[in-house]
Design a protein around this nucleic acid. Sequence first.
DNA 1: TATTGTTATACTCTATAACTATA
DNA 2: TATAGTTATAGAGTATAACAATA
Lengths: 135, 135
Amino acid sequence: MEHDLVDLFGRAARKIRRNQMERLAPLGLTPGQSRALRVITGAEEPLRMGDLAERLDVVPRSATTVVDALEEAGLVTRAPDPESGRSILVMPTDRGRTVRTLMGQARREAVEEVFAPLNAEQREQLRALLALLDT
Amino acid sequence: MEHDLVDLFGRAARKIRRNQMERLAPLGLTPGQSRALRVITGAEEPLRMGDLAERLDVVPRSATTVVDALEEAGLVTRAPDPESGRSILVMPTDRGRTVRTLMGQARREAVEEVFAPLNAEQREQLRALLALLDT
DNA sequence: TATTGTTATACTCTATAACTATA
DNA sequence: TATAGTTATAGAGTATAACAATA
């Protein structure tokens, strides 16, 4: 095995990405849209665009693109923030919440497929190590 | 921490990608080009395009793009395979080998920065877990 | 003048499909 | 007809810079 950590990361990331695209396509979602929908439906309060971008770990401009797509698909709506005036709030529609549920199922199947070589203990180990990197 | 394995993977992958782009930019390389140059310079024999694609885990068309860029930068050359006629061999130039060395340095610095939160034992654990996924 | 989000634009990575040349 | 690589094209993700509206 001549692959270093970065290589192995890239290989796993490509595999995950392909799997996600395949599983999410029937729902009309890309992996990035699914991620954003998960954050938006998971938030306790409607999110401002800037906060969404931060949680997604992307620049604000990138959040605009993904919310445009989700809005056009009828899964989220934008509304002016009554408290700010220059902020915009994003919140899920009923359909968005429904799709979010279906998506969760697809996602679990995807995880099961990609991480099949790891047992429960190994997955937890991996999760803990990756969490350390997320700082 | 509300992130699952796939999320954490994505977050780490984005961090690695940003770091690599920054470190490799001074060399005029993208992460994908650097990866290909590493495979090409690391091969014992000149590689056929198809073999390169396979080792990079991409479709042949994607190998064409990256080799185009490396060739234009004077880091690799293409030559017809004397044994096949419809195959094309890719091999590094002297400059390609030089850049490969500089690149190795940049890469080690990048790894050190991104994986700083992990000690040697944890990195080895992570490497082993990721290797299990690479099947 | 600083902040929030968007329009405009570009680049990286990857993929499918159709075509060319060879076998 | 099957294989190797390329041309043509597209879509997903991300980014910087310039701008409008608001504060």
